[in-house]
Design a protein around this nucleic acid. Sequence first.
DNA 1: AAAATGACGGTGT
DNA 2: TACACCGCCATTT
Length: 102
Amino acid sequence: MDTSFKEKVYEVLRTVPKGKVVTYGQLSKLSGKPKAARAVGMLMAKNPDAPKTPCHRVVASDGTLHGYSGKGGILGKKKMLIEEGVVFKGEKVDLEKSQWNV
DNA sequence: AAAATGACGGTGT
DNA sequence: TACACCGCCATTT
């Protein structure tokens, strides 16, 4: 296993509990690169461990759902999060209630 | 090795 | 509130 940035991101992402979401910036920060949110997004897009990595629990800094390589795209992602217990506020996630507490 | 890409974040208009 | 621009970074081609 390599200690690359992406490995770290996946590792942290895997620790995100069901019903909670984490922002790209938060993931990047926990991975050691506070400003690598953009890079994190790319890693999700590539997402080599789809069923293993809960990439659908990753949202933008303000709770907005950006993209999703999986089926259904943004809509499917949003729906999945709701099923897990994530609280939505209109088109965004209620970070006050569903953001992962580090 | 260099350039282009992208599921970001923040600020400005 | 919505759209546009800039800055930031690792991955991919």
